[in-house]
Write a protein that binds this DNA or RNA. Sequence first.
DNA 1: GTTGAAATTAGTACGAA
DNA 2: TTCGTACTAATTTCAAC
Lengths: 230, 230
Amino acid sequence: MTETSRNSAHEGGQPGRIGIGLELDATHLKILEVLRENGRISVAALAERVGISRANAYTRFEALRADGAIKRFTAEIDHVRAGLGITALIFVTVRQQMWRQFRAQLAAMPEVEYCAITTGQHDAMIQVRVTDVAAVHTMVTDRLANIPAVKATETVFILDEVLRRPYVLPSDRGPGRSARRPAHDPADSPGSGGPAGGSGGARSSGGEVPLGMMRFVGAAEGRAQLQRDA
Amino acid sequence: MTETSRNSAHEGGQPGRIGIGLELDATHLKILEVLRENGRISVAALAERVGISRANAYTRFEALRADGAIKRFTAEIDHVRAGLGITALIFVTVRQQMWRQFRAQLAAMPEVEYCAITTGQHDAMIQVRVTDVAAVHTMVTDRLANIPAVKATETVFILDEVLRRPYVLPSDRGPGRSARRPAHDPADSPGSGGPAGGSGGARSSGGEVPLGMMRFVGAAEGRAQLQRDA
DNA sequence: GTTGAAATTAGTACGAA
DNA sequence: TTCGTACTAATTTCAAC
């Protein structure tokens, strides 16, 4: 229920159908644009803001929902007012072939708001919200340390959340640049084929990383099985 | 409009009033609980699910909105279906006394979905969503590198988003544990007073960090002025 | 894909407990 | 404060164009 979609996989929509199920046109994107800023707007008002008829808005709204382009509607809550003033990032190194266990344990931790599998030095990044700094320490040393799948952790505190956009859309880019494929020199790509298939040469540097350097690989050993493990 | 609230500051609610403006009781939390999972629920249905009258639900709903506990309602969008299949984290080291410029430049980058100021090796972490890997490279080398405030970057790709909860609430914890202050030994805190006032001793380690180690400081030089700079 | 009308539901205001 | 009810306004649905 709380699991998000895989980057490269579908999420239980129509079984057998992997790719896109709905071709999003400019109007669809416009609807998403309005909806991400005001998720409680009525469809009637939405139609007016987008510039289409109400019936059309209802049809498209329902299509976006059914297709999965809109996953859910949610309220953005002020964590500080809700009593969770401390936010931390915990970078986790996961023991190989224990991803499934790691995922299961994560689901049982209510203070975890976000978890992503990453390339680079660590294997996963989790964001937690707790009441005080001590709770972070408890979380890392007591709860995470007791998971066999967790090999090592590194914790960082979030001092300030500068920016949070309610989901980026390709239409955010100016009309001059293509949304599908921004203009660039095709020769200077660091690696083609996407990160999910990443298994290129190891370029792990120890100290300060110069501008633009990417940690593309380094902890990919246990990640190949990720696709079928969980 | 897209700026989120400071961890330790208010956000333009009632001027002069810093702390909490509304004491949240169990019913308020219950409302938030429902609303974060279904932001489009009608107040009538909300009242029924929470177990209060409609009039009461309207009053509390409005109070939560006015107080700022609910910041906004938004639609969760499937970035892959929207055409932004690549997600990356860029860790940025910011040149001292250039935070204001850094923040301003960030606002002009539509592909940035989230940016947080952190403790640890780097100063900020930004999450970007783009169409392909090449766009990440372009973003880092062309756009970020041209910001004088940016000293160094380190990029990591997100292979999978395992978990995303629509905002964690203190009520997520079981009823046995206190929401305000979880039971723990007060002596084993890594540092008291919260991370916002962080200026403790430097404990920066170079290689693999053992379990539970925290990068509490290390790049705090330019961060003290953060409170008044931007 | 659009417009317009009917049915339903949502939002407001009030007095009572 | 909270609840219940009645009133008003809006939204959603469904029809025909």
